[in-house]
Nucleic acid binder design. Sequence first.
DNA 1: CGGAATCCGGCATGATACTG
DNA 2: CAGTATCATGCCGGATTCCG
Lengths: 122, 122
Amino acid sequence: MAKKDLYGLCPYVTSQKILSGKWSIYLLYLLQEGPVRFNELQRKMPEDITHTTLSRQLKSLEEEGLIIRREYSQIPPRVEYSLSEIGLKFESVLEALGNWGSDYIEFVKHKNHTMEKDGEAI
Amino acid sequence: MAKKDLYGLCPYVTSQKILSGKWSIYLLYLLQEGPVRFNELQRKMPEDITHTTLSRQLKSLEEEGLIIRREYSQIPPRVEYSLSEIGLKFESVLEALGNWGSDYIEFVKHKNHTMEKDGEAI
DNA sequence: CGGAATCCGGCATGATACTG
DNA sequence: CAGTATCATGCCGGATTCCG
């Protein structure tokens, strides 16, 4: 059954597919610290994101097994998202990604700086 | 100048943008072991990819500073791609990604297995 | 409050053909 | 062999609306 043969069972291809969602990484990052409610997630996003989009991304991550959706039967509704077991394991990736991202930002700053010094206007 | 403000200087958002290319992760993975020629890259891709697409992805990664394109003036042309300094630093991410991807594949296999045992046909 | 259903637009990818 | 130019298209994200 294994849906889509798990992309040839290649870990990199598989990872790529899962990270293809525009907000997947940041959502997993936000969920690291425990259960978060839907609206709270929306507010914490670095850019504006409609609830439609957020809903889809979360549903997708849930179907892939990375996150858990817990619904409390009350009015008004309360839904919390958290990392699953395999989602928790993703934290090592997040850490590497965070470190590298910071390095990369510094790299680009430096690159721009030297470009200015050289008087390039590209 | 800093193009697009580096996505708010957030490491996760920045990383997400760079990994948005459909093949970025796998390309970086392939380039880990040293310079690779264009056609060689194309052959090593896990799925068929047109040279148009490959060319664009490589150009994109090059502009972002992750890879280096070296052209040898000869006929027929010979172009080799390799990781830049910041691209080399990405290897820690690749390692984490590879490990997690393998775990995830196992996770899905197990999930499917138990689903079959339970006789679910979803 | 959280989400489903639609519609729409953009853009990345893919297909094809041409160049040095 | 490697790349560009052009055109087609499919999918994803965003906007809006309705629902419980």
